[in-house]
Design a protein around this nucleic acid. Structure first.
Length: 295
DNA sequence: ACCTCGACCTGGGCGC
DNA sequence: TGCGCCCAGGTCGAGG
């Protein structure tokens, strides 16, 4: 589940590679993955256009070309990689033991690779998505800033951390929803998914089912301060703890950057030793520590 | 207006 | 060995 740190890691990988390259061919084998608001179908519209920039807002990757901007939503299992045929492809994907996320520096198109964008120099951009929850949403470039997918987003905790405190202090007291559910709402704050919401609530010692309006000011301020630092640490780690493979195999990973609660139901809390518990909120599995996150 | 829940999708793990 | 069942979750639309 690519959340903000994974999407930012992907962005940083593509940003030095795509701008300046020109699109020569686009192949889409699953039309449902594409929502196109341009006059021509995506495959024709992108032809001959040169990439300008690769941006990010929350979990959305924004690929700007000369006349078109493509919003790439990775959904659950989306991957976007640059491929240079002159360089070796990965033999297999590395799979994160907890999240199941797959990663490879570059890979040959396979049965899960549903969109291939070939460039005039022979390189390509590959979109791979096992569960196909992701979408490519194309807009004429002058309309993209008004795209509902972007207008509906709350503040980005990494790009706009200065807005976060005031925004959460204003909005959370208005809602009866569990804080866990509220933080998953991209209209309140964008970029968090199930992993980082559980990690943030553990980090701030907040019981996940607490209604937003029952949080006190200190708790909200703690979230506003902790969430950006949590995400920035994960970005520095190149996404969800991919560099932690060794720690998560066996050793009770005391690495500060490893996941503290997500996926650890039934195991001991690293902080207090209590057995981590699980509940469902907003239809999502939530793992929490009954001692550290007392009701 | 706000909130909850099921559908969408596939692969992996588990029980029989 | 293999089959069927269930679970994982980001987003959206339907319904409360």
């Amino acid at each position: 589940m690519p959340e903000l740190p994974e999407v930012e890691t992907i962005r940083r990988g593509l940003a030095p590679k795509l701008p300046g390259r020109t699109i020569a061919r686009v192949t889409v084998d699953r039309p449902k993955l594409v929502v196109c608001h341009t006059t021509l179908p995506l495959e024709e519209d992108l032809l001959g256009q040169t990439y300008q920039s690769v941006r990010r807002r929350g979990k959305i990757l924004i690929v700007d070309l000369e006349r078109t901007s493509v919003l790439v939503r990775l959904g659950m299992t989306g991957q976007m990689t640059f491929r240079d045929p002159a360089l070796p492809d990965a033999a297999k994907f590395s799979v994160h033991p907890v999240t199941g996320l797959q990663r490879a520096p570059q890979h040959a198109p396979d049965k899960h690779t549903h969109i291939v964008v070939e460039h005039s120099d022979g390189t390509m951009a590959c979109y791979r998505d096992i569960r196909m929850f992701g979408r490519w949403i194309a807009y004429p470039r002058e309309q993209v800033e008004d795209a509902p997918e972007l207008l509906g987003l709350g503040p980005d905790p990494v790009a706009q951390p200065e807005c976060l405190r005031e925004h959460l202090l204003r909005e959370l007291p208005k809602t009866t929803r569990a804080i866990k559910v509220a933080l998953l709402d991209q209209a309140l704050i964008c970029g968090l998914g199930n992993i980082y919401v559980d990690e943030a609530l553990f980090g701030c010692r907040i019981y996940p089912a607490t209604p937003g309006r029952e949080l006190n000011k200190d708790q909200i301020e703690a979230l506003a301060q902790f969430i950006p630092s949590l995400l920035e640490r994960a970005i520095a780690n190149r996404g969800t703890t991919f560099s932690d493979y060794r720690d998560s195999e066996g050793n009770p990973g005391h690495n500060q950057d490893s996941l503290q609660v997500y996926g650890r139901y039934g195991q001991e809390c690293y902080r207090c030793g209590s057995t981590l518990e699980r509940l469902t909120l907003g239809g999502r599995t939530t793992t929490w520590c009954p001692q550290c996150q007392a009701q």
